[in-house]
Design a protein around this nucleic acid. Structure first.
Lengths: 193, 193
DNA sequence: AAGTGCTCTTGATATAGATCAACAGTATTT
DNA sequence: AAATACTGTTGATCTATATCAAGAGCACTT
């Protein structure tokens, strides 16, 4: 149940056996079936979720009704709307299960309590957010400077597992291009080499 | 010298007088003249900088030679290439003073030492990176879903001070559009209302 | 086994924004 | 005070990608 979580955490900080046990108490295990939602637009994000198994996505819908995927999360990743989670403001995101998933949830009070009792977790989350920030910066620069094909190629090489498990039109939405364009690009790439 | 810094920190965590004094010792004050660089592409980012006074920018140059601005930093902001700073890998960014600036620098060892001695700073940086992450997500979604005009309008309303102090072609670069397009957009907007 | 959704593909056409080029003000430097 | 470098504007043309529309292949459901 907690294997993936502590494996992930211990890559960044080293928890003692006691600390691990302490932490466990704060998480709420939760299963979702494919297509179920952890969070819907305009609700407050009550949980930060760690994905033990399965795949999820976070996306917004803009005024014209088109979806934009902010993040995918496979096993070993965290997903939530931190802004809404921390401020209590309604969220602009939807978080949906793309497969049957097993999650470990933290509520706001549990999160705070855990940071109090296990200060190493403060460090863990600092490192984690800095890492996400770096990745997000890269993605932004990519979206400003790269062609649709370059963006796709980079995604394929950095996260091949996502390509395998997620429908193509969602990949397109993540990259900020239309499904049609992605389809044409893939065709080109395949006939070319 | 440290007014802006501690004002910024105390908005997120509360430091005692002793803690403030402790912290001070870790920072290296540094002045740069307009157009001087704190970091150049391919060098390792040795410092994380807090801007006490002035304005800076971080940018990359892509294969085709065009510049993409990742971040501006006015007084009260932090700037660095965290990735290079934390890993010791060469940086892909340039960090340049846009005006004469007064900085407070942290080296890697000083940073670690400070986190050890003043654990509240761990919390401060965690909160700070989460906030930056949220802002970065917003900017990404904007860049995927908004028209050039919408992006510009949003920048004007969220950071009016940046617009005042930074040349227009850099604003364009930050938004991921050409200077010509920005010029035309501004003209349109002004004649329209 | 037929029906109803998804998911992806392909074609025709439209468009926002890029690129290239020239020029005019303003600052900075010498 | 002249020279040189920035910065922003405007026009003409080009291009990557979007949009609209139709159809084909699967895969669940009943």
């Amino acid at each position: 149940m907690f294997e993936v979580l502590f494996k992930a955490i211990n890559e960044k900080v080293t928890l003692t056996q006691e600390e691990e046990e302490l932490c466990k108490a704060f998480f709420i295990p939760k299963k979702l079936r494919k297509k179920q939602y952890l969070l819907q637009q305009d609700d407050v994000c009550k949980y930060t979720a760690f994905v033990e198994k399965g795949a999820m996505r976070a996306y917004t819908t803009d005024d014209k009704g088109s979806e934009h995927i902010v993040q995918f999360a496979l096993e070993g990743w965290w997903i939530s709307d931190i802004y809404s989670f921390l401020t209590g403001e309604p969220s602009i995101y939807n978080i949906e299960a793309l497969e049957d998933v097993e999650l470990l949830l933290l509520t706001r009070p549990k999160d705070e309590e855990m940071l109090q009792k296990v200060p190493k977790m403060e460090r863990y989350f600092r490192i984690l957010s800095q890492k996400s920030l770096v990745a997000m910066q890269r993605r932004l620069i990519g979206s400003l400077s790269q062609s649709a094909e370059e963006k796709y190629t980079r995604l394929v090489t950095t996260y091949p597992d996502i390509i395998q498990r997620v429908p193509q039109h969602m990949i397109a939405s993540y990259l900020g291009i239309t499904p049609e364009t992605l389809s044409r690009i893939r065709k080109q790439m395949s006939t070319r080499k």
